[in-house]
């Protein structure tokens, strides 16, 4: 299962998916303490040209799935997905990851841990990895950690890099609004300062056309993005939610109430109106 053994995929013979993808479970700290939260990562390393998918995979594909098997009393929190990139081919745009990505999850230990030396975390991971062809795959990953009375210190390293790619909540001063025109959504982000460019990744499929170019225009106090509506969007939507990725690599969760062009009231009453 070494990375050096990557097979060249042939159109008609399905290479085993493990030749093009390597999945490992890693822990951020060297030990776990009762009642403490510890972060683990599911790391995917991909051979050149291959990719896996984000929560909203775009035009094709399917995100990886993780099923935890933890000792009694341990609880895994929701997976944290780093922001994806646009994987562009001539007729399709997917949202996903090439080269390497790590999905993060917090695992909380029970307050009382029976005396034992080690705990084992395991998971079944399923994925679809694609290049010209798509290969489904599945593996079991596991790691064991010593139990210590106090939490181990948090080391810097690969988790920090992965964490930097996970979208943050947008700063409280930001205002996001979307105007629904006939064929486009105009997503306006007011950030208090100009944003030169950005890419928007919708959380929900079938809201915007993935293949359409996103036209970004910098504003004195933020940015405006024109997003073509999806062919498959048959009903008006109340909110446009997604991830905004800035040139710095920082990314933010966006939740924009949608107003129909020509209407002064937002389609959802709760939404804040800024003059």
């Amino acid at each position: 299962m070494g990375i050096a053994s990557f097979a060249t995929p042939q159109a008609r013979t399905d290479p085993p998916s493990t030749n093009v993808i390597q999945v490992t479970l890693v822990a951020e700290r060297e030990s776990i303490a009762p009642g403490h939260e510890s972060w683990v990562g599911i790391r995917f390393q991909l051979a050149k040209g291959w990719h896996i998918y984000w929560i909203n995979p775009g035009d094709s594909g399917d995100p990886p799935r993780v099923q935890w098997r933890l000792p009694p009393g341990f609880k895994a929190g929701p997976l944290q997905w780093p922001h994806p990139e646009r994987l562009v081919t001539k007729y399709a745009v997917d949202y996903g990851y090439a080269d390497e990505v790590m999905l993060l999850a917090p695992i909380r230990a029970p307050a009382k841990l029976a005396a034992r030396n080690q705990v084992e975390f395991a998971a079944t991971v399923k994925w679809v990895v694609c290049r010209e062809v798509c290969l489904p795959g599945k593996t079991e990953v596991a790691l064991s950690l010593p139990v210590t009375p106090r939490a181990a210190s948090q080391p810097a390293g690969s988790f920090e890099d992965a964490r930097k790619r996970v979208p943050e909540r947008a700063p409280a001063r930001w205002r996001a609004r979307a105007l629904a025109e006939q064929n486009e959504f105009v997503l306006a982000i007011e950030a208090g300062e100009p944003i030169t460019s950005a890419v928007f990744f919708p959380l929900q499929p079938r809201q915007i056309e993935n293949t359409a170019e996103q036209t970004a225009s910098a504003q004195p106090r933020g940015i405006e993005l024109r997003l073509r509506k999806s062919e498959q969007l048959l009903r008006p939507i109340a909110r446009l939610q997604g991830v905004l990725v800035l040139p710095s690599g920082k990314s933010y969760l966006i939740d924009a109430p949608v107003t129909v062009a020509g209407n002064t009231t937002p389609t959802e009453q709760k939404s804040r109106k800024k003059s």
Binding site: S60, G61, K90, Y91, E132, V133, R206, Q232, L234
Partner: peptide
Amino acid sequence: EAATRPYGCSVKYKE
């Protein structure tokens, strides 16, 4: 339910 997100492999069109 007249429109849903299709799922699958991408169509391997002529480039």
